[in-house]
Amino acid sequence: MGVSPPPTDPRTDTDLIATYLRGEVRAFEAIYERHKDFAARTARRFARDESEAMDAFQEAFTRLVNHAPRLRMTAKLSTWLYPVIRNIVAERRRKERGLRLVGGEADLDRAGPAVADVQPVDTDDLRHRLARLPDDQREVVLLRVVEEMSVEEVSIALGIPEGTVKSRLHHALKTMET
């Protein structure tokens, strides 16, 4: 099962945004199609429930539309979307007890039927291994393995050095092995 469908438009994210800024709305639709699954997964990881996730998801794309003229992209758009979505959720929960990356055991249990439908075998063990990881390590694993980002892209998305990405990934995978 592919979590990210192949992009139907061969143009780069930068080209699509430039084209959208010239007035071609279909270019934005192509951007949306390309990144919506990633953005939705990211929002669902941080949000407490589906409603909060979809609010953050919509707000992220709204900001993309509004900030497009000032956007300076040096990598894939997903590296811009990830911190934006995380910040949106954090802003909404600033007065609460702080942002926590969803993906722990209890959070993954909330995934419920969708997860069970997709892969009913051996998921419990994997959930537990993932749940054992600290938030920062789990975040790197998810971006690197699930979102298939390069180490450089993870570094940009999280705003941390590549070496830190590698060390977190190294420790996380070692922990998950045991």
Binding site: M1, V3, A40, R45, V115, V118, Q119, D122, L126, V141
Partner: peptide, 13 residues
């Protein structure tokens, strides 16, 4: 990797 991706496959938008 495939099982991790499956864990994070969710409902449509």
């Amino acid at each position: 990797a495939q099982r991790l991706r499956a864990l994070h496959a969710r409902a449509p938008i």
